[in-house]
Design a protein around this nucleic acid. Structure first.
Length: 272
DNA sequence: CAAGATTCCTGGTGGC
DNA sequence: TGCCACCAGGAATCTT
């Protein structure tokens, strides 16, 4: 479900909710696996610890304690919410109980999410975190480093920017949106992008993600912020899910095609 | 190495 | 109204 802006919005929501660094009183796992088995023992070892802060790496959330971190990936349909006693819903899989009656619920109908444990200081060696590429919103992610990554690859540029080994957090929606902003066709072979186009693309990715974060993410289907409010970036989509609609810039009909198994949208006049 | 299919799941939608 | 095929924000793993 959520791409970087949605995960970042949820991270902030959790941070607000947990700012008093509450102690974890109980972790209730309603099942032992999501997409993958949950390391039950390791997860349970954090009962009694306080959540000190919430961080994000790629689309993973990390709930930090002094004895290790809880790792949460939302897959396509995962959500965290504040769930007072009595608020139990279908497809709730995890409840985190804190002091003062605070309870967090993880709900994930499709169960494509991941819930795990990261030992202290093991982030870079963790199986799920070790192969991740650049964080798009850091200074380290530049046109030059992207260009170096792309110059040996023939895959379509949209597939490349969705490849988590190259740059993280860009999913199917924001890949189409960023390429529109950069004026680059999604089907362009990666190695054909000039340095200048890579510069433009990196800027476009950063801008697109920042604008979406500002809007609280995009709410389509079941995504919502922790507060229960919707993000509104979907009203700002230029191309995503706008097949045959008029391009907001040039009025030409938006094109759509399946690329790498994912629906892809672009303006054939604005993007070359 | 590239491109596409498949896999994990449930639920909403659109066509007939 | 009912049924069913198809599609969905992710991502790893296969086959060709």
């Amino acid at each position: 479900m959520p791409e970087l802006p949605e995960v970042e919005t949820i991270r902030k929501g959790l941070e607000d909710l947990l700012q008093h660094q509450p102690k974890i009183l109980k972790i209730e796992l309603l099942r032992k696996d999501l997409r993958e088995p949950i390391p039950v023992k390791m997860v349970q070892s954090l009962v009694g610890q306080r959540i000190k802060k919430i961080e994000r790496r790629a689309k993973y959330l990390l709930m930090r304690t002094d004895k290790g971190s809880l790792l949460s990936h939302l897959g396509m349909t995962g959500t965290w919410r504040e769930a007072p006693l009595g608020d139990e819903r279908l497809h709730d899989h995890i409840y985190l109980y804190f002091e003062k009656g605070l309870r967090l619920a993880y709900r994930d109908p499709r169960r494509f999410g991941i819930f795990g444990f990261v030992a202290l200081g093991e982030d870079v060696r963790h199986l799920k975190l070790q192969h991740l590429g650049f964080e798009p919103l850091t200074e380290a992610f530049t046109g030059e480093v992207l260009w170096k990554q792309l110059r040996s690859k023939a895959v379509a540029i949209k597939i490349a920017i969705m490849d988590q080994k190259i740059v993280v957090g860009v999913g199917n929606i924001y890949a189409s949106e960023a390429l529109f902003k950069a004026g680059i066709r999604p089907t362009t072979p990666s190695l054909k992008l000039s340095r200048e186009k890579c510069d433009r693309l990196v800027l476009a990715i950063k801008e697109t993600l920042r604008e979406a974060i500002k809007a609280g993410g995009s709410s389509i289907s079941d995504y919502e912020k922790l507060s229960g409010e919707s993000g509104y970036f979907q009203t700002q989509f230029q191309v995503y899910d706008r097949k045959n609609a008029e391009c907001k810039i040039c009025k030409k009909k938006i094109s759509a095609q399946v690329l790498g198994g994912r629906s892809t949208f672009w303006c054939s006049s604005c993007q070359k």
